[in-house]
Design a protein around this nucleic acid. Structure first.
Lengths: 343, 343
DNA sequence: GTGAAAGCGCTAACAG
DNA sequence: CTGTTAGCGCTTTCAC
């Protein structure tokens, strides 16, 4: 039997004013006698008053809560996004309701319903289902995040700048003397594959290397997928050093394992560049050179955009956050040695 | 300008019944004509009614929300805990408000206040400040998690079973022929250090090895801390193979790096056993053998306990969740070779 | 079995 | 500058 929490009435009574005066004082309104305000504030502190946000939300239509629906908080990238969102939200003194969709449309839908029932003021979601199409009639301000958000035109969304990232990676590669990297990309069905491939091709043309000559292997976006792809690559006839640009860090690490499995060495025999910036990349041997997605920034920017959306000044476009290179040890420096054929 | 959300009144009108009847039908009450219930349910679906949890919470005193305050969602262990809690909560159809304390007492306090204002039904927190002492007067059902929770007697808490974990590790070590591991532990000030050390000592005595002969190095609970400790260890005069049991995976990985740095090899020259079970351990070379804390189970169990607490059937004790061994490749098998001096 | 009415704690007119 | 009043949407007596 917990004792009743003090309400604004308790505060008002103790301060000898009316409910509304107390409310105004608590809200820090201007039109109030300094002396009255202080009396109310003192009373509030004395009784241990804490504003009931349920009641506030009910009356004002603002719950002070935001929803965040991401696939898996256990995945380092999404954890990073969540952290960014959490921090930015805390700054603005709003709370975040977090949910894991597990890439399951059914869960996503059920979580979205939960958010609506909770009367959150808006939601940030990495969409898995296409059913989010009629987002407008969803009755909730939205900001989409991640690459899957690009399917939805005219909804605010934020994600990494793949084009810039690929350019960054490719530039770094040529600075190390690698002019036409072999690509390990995701499965054919995935949108991300196309986007990655396109960016590489576009950039290759700019650098006068024929995209058609780029070797491409694909596999699942997993350790094993990368390992298998690398094994296949190693089975091909090849000449000298080989340089691999993997579309994600897990695949890159898998590739690294395949190299060791075949008795070869990284970076001496094969150079590997990853993409994601997962923490584990710091602990592989050699350390994985990779280009990191700005998860935290994405999360923070998403709540920022969501605030805009809620305030009624929507941008309704995609924001691309820049990636950065993490230079570790998985790339050989060939720039001082004789150039290879390509490039 | 978003259109007004349908309320229970809209449902009632459409079904041709009163507010209260509609409410009863929606709540699935017994005392209602089947026919009426169906009419109401149909009406609810027709108008797209979704219960307003703010209003429910206000009236019933149950917000259907729980709070989770952990140091850093970006830390794999805490992400795992969060995941467990998220899943269990979703199962019970309650939402989770998540906050990062960053080991900062000020943030912790402010988050706790936010939770109270949000009128969560209870909170799960990894306590950083000692000020949580008067938890009773906090006006909120609590379940504490993690090792720092052990400071608070007579509050429900759940954490890993360090004793069982150490026993598991030590047993595995002897099965591989290592009888008196060198310990790399945390800084003197930390409670966790003592607990770890105690467990090792207790178990050593049981196996007839004198705890006093165990070599102990300490350092920060970080990569660098582990590296430095290992370097110091390597500087000591030693005979043959050395086996290290690190109190956390980061330190273990740091130690591994130090070994390589000195031109030695793991596991041929030094065996390393970690403690935590972070994902990165799978990607080191060699893969880190470690004992994994059941983060997810801890999170799930914590919301379970919290439900009990809320329902008014508190256990008020600590629950210890068992750890498990992940056997990878950082331990040499000396069991077939001549025994070492110790043990 | 169903309806009418009260009230959870708060804010926002509207008076004074 | 401050008080009074009317709800926000829902559940819950208490009647009928």
């Amino acid at each position: 039997m917990r004792k009743r929490r003090p309400t604004i009435i308790d505060v008002a009574e103790r301060a000898g004013v009316s409910k509304s005066t107390a409310a105004r004082a608590l809200a820090g309104a201007e039109s109030i006698l300094d002396e009255t305000r202080e009396r109310v504030l003192a009373a509030a502190k004395a009784v241990g008053y804490e504003r009931n946000h349920l009641a506030v939300g009910m009356r004002s239509g603002r719950s002070g809560m935001l929803g965040l629906v991401i696939p898996d908080i256990t995945n380092p990238f999404w954890a990073d996004v969540a952290r960014g969102a959490l921090d930015r939200a805390a700054e603005a003194d709003v709370s975040l309701l977090v949910f894991s969709s597990d890439w399951d449309p059914a869960k996503e839908e059920s979580h979205l319903r939960a958010l609506r029932r909770a009367r959150v003021d808006g939601a940030i979601v990495n969409p898995v289902s296409d059913a989010l199409d009629d987002l407008d009639k969803f009755g909730l301000p939205f900001v989409l995040i991640g690459s899957s958000a690009e399917r939805f035109a005219d909804v605010s969304s934020v994600g990494s700048d793949i084009t810039q990232a690929v350019e960054l990676g490719l530039d770094h590669l040529v600075s190390k003397g690698h002019h036409a990297p072999t690509l390990i990309v995701g499965p054919k069905s995935r949108l991300a594959r196309t986007r990655f491939l396109n960016a590489v091709q576009r950039h290759s043309i700019k650098r006068d290397v024929d995209p058609a000559q780029l070797i491409v292997e694909d596999g699942e976006y997993t350790l094993e997928g990368g390992r298998l792809a690398m094994l296949r690559l190693l089975d091909r006839p090849r000449l000298g050093h080989i340089c691999v640009f993997a579309a994600n860090d897990m695949m890159a690490i898998g590739a690294m394992m395949a190299v060791r499995e075949r008795g070869l060495r990284c970076p001496e025999d094969v150079s590997i560049l990853g993409f994601d910036g997962i923490p584990s990349g710091a602990f592989t041997f050699p350390g994985l050179t990779t280009i990191a997605k700005p998860g935290r920034d994405i999360g923070a920017r998403a709540v920022e955009s969501l605030f805009d959306e809620i305030e009624g000044r929507p941008e309704h476009g995609r924001v691309y956050m820049p990636c950065r290179l993490i230079d570790r040890a998985s790339l050989a420096d060939l720039s001082r040695e004789p150039r290879k054929l390509a490039g």
